[in-house]
Simulated assay, not measured.
Amino acid sequence: MQIEFTKYHGLGNDFILIDNRLSDEPRLTPAQAATMCDRHFGVGADGVIFVLPGQNGTDYTMRIFNSDGSEPEMCGNGIRCLARFIADLEGVTEPRSYTIQTLGGLITPKLTADGLITVDMGEPILRAADIPTTLGQPDQPVVNHSLEAAETIWNVTCINMGNPHCITFVDDVAAISLETVGSPIECHPAFPQKINVEFIQVVRSDYLKMRVWERGAGITLACGTGACAALVAAVLTDLSDRSATVELPGGCLLIEWSETDNHLYMTGPAERVFAGNYSASQS
C-alpha cells in the first residue's frame, strides 16, 4: 500500500502528515503508524497526523498516532503542523483560520501574516478528576502536590490542555535526567491514562525554560500543550506573568493565558521538511 505523506516539524517536534480527507477513518493502523515513525527503519517522526473530514460543522478533524502507536487527545505542535499542511493542500498563502475537531475538543489555529501560527488552545482544565489523576481531592486543582517517583519526592502541578500534563519547577532543567525520571512519572499509578511530564525553570516572570517527556513518544524537542500547561502552572504558583516566552530545546513559543476569556493562546512556527511515498505493510 503506497501512502503519500509530507513531513513537518514544530520546533523539532516532527510529524508525518497524511491527507485523509476522503475517509473518516485513518488510512493507517496504530501499528503501521508506529512502524512509519521508526527513525531507523521508517520515515522517522514523533507521530503520524491524519487530516480527516470535519465534524459538526468544523473545517477538518485531526487524529494522531504517537510513535508507540498510542493515540493522544491533542498535540499543540502537531496542530500547528496540521494547519500549515492544510494551507499547503489548499494553496492558501494569506492569513486565515481553521476550525479543527480533536479528541481533546475544538481547536482553532490561525495562520498569521508573519508566517507563524497562533492557536486558540481553549481553557485549561484544573480539576483532579478531569486531568485525570488520583492526587489530591477529585474536585480540586492539583497544585504543588507531592509525588514520589524514581526514588525522589517531586512537587507537581497537574493541568489538562486537552491532554494531561504533570509540571515540576526546578532550578536547572539541564540537570534533570529525563531518561531516568520521565517514564516513571508518565506511568505512575496516580495517572490512570498516563501523563506528559514537564520540568520548568523560571528564568524571569516572562521567560520559562522547559524540557519534556511526552506520553507515548518519550523525549521530544518541543510540546505545545506542555508549554501552555507550564504557563498555567507557573501562574497558579505565582512564578510567572500571564504571558511568557517558553524556551524548549527546539526553540521558543509565545504563550498567553488571557484574563478576558480564560483561553490559552500559543504562537509559534511550523515548517515543511520533505514529501514522499511510503510503502506500508498490510499488517
Rank of each mutant, 00 (worst) to 15 (best):
I16K: 02
L17W: 03
D19A: 01
N20V: 14
R21T: 09
R21V: 12
R21S: 12
S23Q: 15
S23C: 08
D24K: 12
E25K: 10
E25S: 10
P26G: 08
R27N: 01
R27W: 09
L28V: 13
T29I: 04
T29H: 13
T29Y: 08
P30K: 13
A31P: 06
A31K: 14
A34L: 10
M36V: 06
M36W: 07
M36L: 13
C37A: 08
C37H: 12
C37E: 12
R39A: 13
H40F: 15
F41G: 12
V43W: 05
G44V: 00
G44M: 01
A45P: 13
A45N: 07
G47D: 03
I49G: 02
L52Y: 03
P53I: 07
G57W: 10
G57A: 05
G57V: 13
G57Y: 10
G57M: 07
T58Q: 08
D59C: 00
T61W: 04
T61R: 02
T61E: 07
R63F: 06
I64W: 01
I64T: 09
S67H: 03
S67Y: 05
D68G: 00
G69E: 14
G69W: 09
S70K: 01
S70E: 09
E71T: 06
E71I: 11
E73Y: 07
M74C: 15
M74A: 11
C75L: 02
C75P: 04
G78H: 15
I79T: 06
I79K: 02
I79H: 07
A83S: 15
A83Y: 14
R84W: 07
R84Y: 05
R84C: 07
F85D: 08
F85Y: 13
F85R: 11
I86R: 02
I86E: 02
D88K: 11
D88T: 04
E90F: 02
G91K: 07
V92A: 10
T93P: 00
T93H: 13
E94P: 07
R96C: 00
S97N: 07
Y98A: 00
I100H: 09
I100K: 14
Q101I: 00
T102G: 08
T102M: 08
T102H: 05
G104V: 02
G104F: 01
G105N: 12
G105T: 05
L106G: 03
L106W: 12
L106T: 15
L106A: 08
T108P: 09
T108A: 11
P109S: 06
K110W: 06
K110F: 10
L111D: 13
T112G: 07
D114W: 00
